[in-house]
Computed example of a mutant assay.
Amino acid sequence: MGLKEDKQETCGTICLKYLLFTFNFLFWLAGGAVMAVGTWTIVEKSDYISLLSSKIYAVSAYILIMAGVIVMVTGVLGCCATFKEQRRLLRVYFVLLLCVFLLEILAGVLAYIYYQQLNEELKENLRETMVQKYHQPEQDHVTKAVDKLQQEFKCCGSNNSSDWADSVWIRSGDAQRRAVPDSCCKSPVIQLCGERDHPSNIYKVEGGCISKLGNFILNHLQIIGAVGVGIACVQIFGMFFTCCLYRSLKAEPY
């Protein structure tokens, strides 16, 4: 009878080991995906981040990068702990899983909070940033971001092209009689194309760049939130398998 129970326990332990190993492999791949999303946000969209007064969008991305790195390290540690059947390693692995779980939930919550306040922030700050800082000393990053925004999203001005009439740069002699920046033009390669602000020459978009940038960031925040919360939910299974395997192993002698 005792031999039969030991055999059943051994089979259960083996099943748990392979379940946990499969989970760790998938978890390691997921860590790479999480890190990739965070890195893409920071590297490829850093220009747009400079147009936002709040840092929540950037912080959410950095949290995802940190969580992705920890996930990949945790996945390797989990495989080692599983096959070596060491309770101490399993304890460390469980704590790391819990930390990553909390980080990803935090990233998801931050993304959701910022999702709620994004439109108000853009309405309050984007116009002022564009008219006050465009082509001003030590504001090259803003100038580059605005030009990229207007060209990529085919828009002109925060709400519409008439916003540029209040621009510090347009009112100065440096604008060389431009009514809008050349980045508003449908053919920006033409020198001083911003002199003519007719719809045939420049982008006239309802809602201006606020609506375009707002929709872009909202969509990206949904990705950040979904990735963070989705993987965090999957981790619950990993923590459950870890607890089961931990309990099935005999206590280590001290």
Rank of each mutant, 00 (worst) to 15 (best):
C99I: 15
E104F: 02
Y114M: 02
E138D: 15
H135M: 15
I113W: 03
L90W: 00
L96Y: 06
L103C: 10
L96S: 08
R127C: 05
E104C: 02
F83K: 08
Y115L: 12
Y134I: 04
R127H: 12
K84Y: 12
V142D: 01
Q139S: 11
L102M: 13
R88M: 12
G108Q: 04
Q117K: 10
G78P: 08
R88Q: 11
L97N: 14
V142T: 14
R91V: 11
E121Y: 00
L118I: 11
K123N: 15
V146G: 01
L98T: 14
L90D: 04
C79Q: 04
M130V: 08
E121W: 05
V76Y: 08
V131H: 04
K148P: 02
L96M: 14
A145Y: 02
C80F: 15
A81D: 04
Y93N: 06
V92Y: 12
R88C: 14
K84F: 13
R127Q: 14
D140H: 10
A107L: 06
G108I: 00
L110T: 00
L102W: 00
Q136M: 13
V100D: 01
Y112Q: 11
R87L: 06
T82E: 08
C80D: 02
V146Q: 06
T82I: 07
V109M: 06
Y93M: 05
E104N: 10
Y115C: 02
Q86M: 13
Y134M: 03
L90I: 03
R127P: 00
E124S: 13
V146N: 02
F83C: 09
I105D: 00
L77N: 03
L110D: 06
L90F: 05
I113M: 10
Y93W: 08
F94H: 10
Q116T: 13
L103W: 02
M130D: 01
R87A: 06
V131W: 04
Q139M: 12
V76W: 00
D147G: 05
G78Q: 11
Y134G: 01
F83N: 04
C79M: 15
